[in-house]
């Protein structure tokens, strides 16, 4: 796992489908994740994007940071627009048009995916269109100013469920979105993180090789929303994996495999401590989170062992 030669970074393509000059926050882990996704996708791709940080930072009229065909329409419908693109291309090809090969990829934030666009995504999966859906999960609605989503982790303080005398922030556990994708019986589901770029890019390639829907869930650290220094983005992403908070796994045709399983998980406090959004947590709450992480991690391991 990410123990490739220290010179491996040099092998990553220099080609940019998402160009510099984009306006993401300094240190943005979501833009970094997107960079890796685009490098792995190459140029034969049509990108459909939902409203959110990555859309806003790349598409201020009359500019674009994109070098591949790109369409943004609304917040909740990227999966559906993608199915329209895919269906039209199939029909046109059947009727004799000579279309260059292209994979349709829909990209949305956690808000777009877990919440407002979940029905649309479920419909698109169920109908079996040939497309990849990428969720860039920064665990809140960042574009509108750090409001909670159903991807926000338990205990995190957001602007719509802030910590206070009578609140410890998010009071619900993060929705298990990959499991929802798996429940649609699609051929490929995987989690990935911008802190593990080779694993991430490898999974993108696997996902687009699949005929039919595939789902990639990428952990994307947001220094602004998580209240961490901008240089800590990669570190915090690694800690999420090393503590078992965000395990990296794949589900291929229903079969789970855990891609990184350290002999000993680090305590979750190592992950929570550097982040301002968890600053208010008491030791009891940290303990509660630890119990939950242990349970969830064991569950994934068990599935992978089957």
């Amino acid at each position: 796992m990410e123990t490739l030669s220290i010179y491996a970074p040099r092998l990553v393509t220099k080609r940019q489908s998402l160009t510099p000059g984009h306006r993401a926050c300094s240190g943005c882990g979501e833009a970094l994740a997107l960079k890796f996704v685009m490098k792995a996708l190459g140029r034969d791709v049509i990108v459909v994007m939902s409203t959110g940080c990555m859309e806003i930072i790349s598409s201020q009229l009359p500019y674009t940071a994109w070098e591949v065909p790109w369409i943004h329409t609304l917040f909740e419908n990227a999966a559906t627009v993608a199915t329209g693109v895919e269906s039209a291309r199939k029909a046109l090809a059947r009727k004799g048009a000579s279309l260059p090969k292209a994979k349709v990829v829909a990209i949305g934030g956690d808000g777009a995916t877990f919440d407002i666009g979940l029905g649309a995504l479920s419909g698109a999966f169920e109908r079996g269109h040939d497309f990849l859906y990428v969720c860039l999960d920064n665990e809140a609605y960042m574009n509108t100013g750090i409001q909670r989503s159903s991807a926000t982790p338990y205990g995190a303080s957001t602007t719509t469920q802030p910590a206070g005398k009578a609140s410890f922030g998010q009071s619900t556990w993060k929705k298990n979105m990959p499991a929802i994708a798996v429940a649609h019986d699609i051929a490929y589901v995987a989690t990935a993180s911008a802190s593990y770029p080779f694993d991430l890019m490898n999974k993108v390639k696997k996902a687009i090789a699949v005929e039919g829907p595939s789902y990639l869930h990428i952990f994307a650290v947001c220094p602004t929303g998580w209240r961490i220094p901008t240089d800590m983005t990669i570190r915090v992403g690694r800690l999420a994996v090393e503590t078992g908070v965000f395990p990296l796994y794949e589900v291929e045709n229903g079969k789970y495999s855990l891609n990184y399983d350290p002999p000993q998980l680090r305590p979750v406090i190592d992950y929570l401590k550097p982040q301002g959004r968890f600053r208010h947590l008491t030791p009891e709450m940290v303990d509660k989170i630890q119990q939950r992480v242990n349970k969830e991690y064991a569950r994934i391991k068990e599935k992978a062992a089957q």
Partner: peptide
């Protein structure tokens, strides 16, 4: 731009023209 200078449907065809935006000023 004037309204006549906008592409149909506000499409941008100069791909990657965000490169001209100097984010280096932010640091």
């Amino acid at each position: 731009l004037s309204w006549k200078e906008l592409n149909l449907g506000f499409v941008v065809t100069e791909m990657g023209n965000a490169r001209s935006y100097r984010t280096g000023y932010w640091k």
